[in-house]
Design a protein around this nucleic acid. Structure first.
Lengths: 245, 245
DNA sequence: AGCATTAGTTTCATTATATGGAACTCGAGT
DNA sequence: ACTCGAGTTCCATATAATGAAACTAATGCT
C-alpha cells in the first residue's frame, strides 16, 4: 500500500513550520517524480484529506482531518479524565494547561486549555517537543524503567544527566522545568497512566516565570497531584507516585 | 487510488459516535471484504494514520492525525485572527467560544476556547452541526446569496423560514439562537471572510441561557463585532456588515 | 474440558492501479 | 513572442490491491 505511505509522508510534511504544500514542495521534500506528486495530491484532495487554499495551488489538511483529533480524545477515558483536571487547574490558576502523550523521543499535546491571565503562555498544540528537554516529556519518560530509557536513547549523545533527572522525577512524583524550552516560561508536569490500555499522559501547567513564586508553584503541583492521584486510583495505575512537595 | 479512498472512508467512520474501530466494524460499516479491511487497517497503522488502543484490536486515529488540525489552523491567517478575538471575548466574559467553518450544509468547529465560569457550555470541537439549525451556521449561510442558499438546500423540505432567518441575520450583522441546538444554551455568532482565500469563519460565543440577560448579550455581540470589524477591514472583507444592536 | 462461534490474518492467482519518463498546458515575467 | 517554472496528462510497464477460501486466535456455551 505504497500510496498510503506516500499520503502519510505528505501529511507528515505539515509538521511545525510548514502550514501549506504545493506539488513542487512535495517533489522537493519527498523526492518523488512530479507526475506522481501531482496525482497524489489530487487523489488526496478528492478524498478530503487535503484541500486547496482559496483557488491557489497550495494545499492544507482537509476537513476530514479536523475531526480526527477530537475522535482521538474521545477514544480515551484517560485523556478525558486528565482534561477535566487540567481544565479545572488552568481556569483556577489562570495559566495555560496541556495534556500530552509521548511518541518515542517526542511529546505532542493532545489537548490544551488557554490560561486567562493577561500574561500567559500561548498554547501551541500540535507542536512536537523533544521528550528529554521538557518537563512534560520527562514526566512521561520517568515512567519507563532505566533500561528502557537507555535503550530509547542509545547512541544519543549529551544525555549524561537524563537518568539523574528522571530519578529525581520518580522520587518527587512530578517534573519541573524553569525557562528550559522557552525563555521566561516554567512548567510543571505529572504523568498518569491507564494500565488497561497502556497509555500514559502528562498533565502539565505552563506559566510565566516572573508571575509565580515557589509557594504558588507548590499550590499548582498540589492541585494537579490531587487530580492525578484520583485518576490513578480510579484506573488502577499502581506505578503512580503521589507527588511530595 | 482506491486505497486512499478506502482509507479516507475509514477515517470518516470516526465522526461523532464512534471513537474506535475494529476490523469487523469496518467490514460492517463499509461493506468491504474482511481480508481487505484487515490489510487496510494494518497498512494505516504502519503509516501512523491509525493506532491500536492498548494491545486490543480497536483502532483510533494515529498520532500523525493529531498535528493536522493544528496545521489547518496555522495555514489560515483568518482563523488566527478570529481566534484572538474569540479567545479574548471568551476569557473576558467567561463563556465558551468557537471558531467554525462551513462545509456544505454542515458546520465544524476548528478551534475552541473553554469558558471559565462555573456554569459553562462544554466545548464539543469536531462535532458537525447542521448549518441551518445553529447560529454559527446561519451566520455563515447569510454570507451566501439567496439563490446560492436555495441551490444548496434544493430538495430539502421544512426550510420555509430559512430565507427569512438569513435576511434577518444579514440585516442585523449577527446570528442569534436561544435554546436551539441544546436546551438551556444560547449562542451568538458573527461571520467574517478573507477575500483572498475565499474562506469564511464564524466567531461564536455560547452561554447558559439563564446566566445572561439582553444587556449582557448585547455587550458580547459588541465585543465580537469590534473584533470582527477589525478583521474585515484588515483583510478587505467588503461584504462584512457591521452588527447593529 | 470440549466444541462451536466469531474475529482477524494469511495465501494465492487475478485484476486493477500506481509508477516515471516525456510530452503537453498554462501563466508570469522579460 | 519567448522562456521559465509549475502543474497536469499520456502511455507502457511494473507493482500493488483485490476477494475467495483456508487458516489461526480468541471467546462463549453446555
Amino acid at each position: 500500500m505504497s500510496v498510503l505511505n506516500n499520503a502519510a509522508d505528505v501529511l507528515r510534511c505539515f509538521g511545525n513550520d510548514c502550514p501549506d504544500l504545493t506539488v513542487s514542495d512535495v517533489v522537493r521534500l519527498l523526492g518523488m517524480p512530479k507526475a506522481n506528486a501531482s496525482r497524489l495530491l489530487k487523489a488526496m484532495r478528492e478524498a478530503n484529506m487535503l484541500e486547496t487554499i482559496g483557488d491557489s495551488h497550495r494545499h492544507r489538511p482537509g476537513r476530514l482531518m479536523l475531526d480526527l483529533a477530537a475522535a482521538y480524545r474521545r477514544s480515551s477515558l484517560l485523556i478525558g479524565r486528565a482534561s477535566e483536571v487540567v481544565a479545572e487547574a488552568s481556569s483556577s490558576f489562570g495559566h495555560t494547561g496541556y495534556i500530552s502523550v509521548r511518541d518515542g523521543k517526542e511529546v505532542t499535546a493532545v489537548a490544551d486549555f488557554q490560561g486567562t491571565n493577561a500574561l500567559r503562555v500561548v498554547s501551541n498544540i500540535g507542536r512536537r517537543l523533544p521528550a528529554h528537554l521538557s518537563a512534560t516529556g520527562r514526566s512521561l519518560l520517568a515512567r519507563l524503567g532505566e533500561d528502557e530509557v537507555r535503550a530509547l536513547y542509545a547512541g544519543h549523545g549529551a544525555l549524561a544527566d537524563l537518568p539523574d533527572q528522571l530519578s529525581k522525577v520518580r522520587h518527587q512524583g512530578f517534573a519541573y522545568s524553569s525557562q528550559e524550552a522557552t525563555p521566561g516560561v516554567d512548567a510543571i508536569a505529572i504523568a498518569v497512566a491507564d494500565p488497561r490500555t497502556d497509555e500514559a499522559v502528562s498533565l502539565c501547567i505552563v506559566y510565566p516565570h516572573t508571575l509565580v513564586d515557589d509557594k504558588g508553584r507548590d499550590e499548582m503541583i498540589a492541585a494537579l497531584a490531587r487530580g492525578a492521584a484520583r485518576i490513578a486510583e480510579d484506573l488502577g495505575d499502581s506505578a503512580f507516585v503521589a507527588p511530595r512537595i
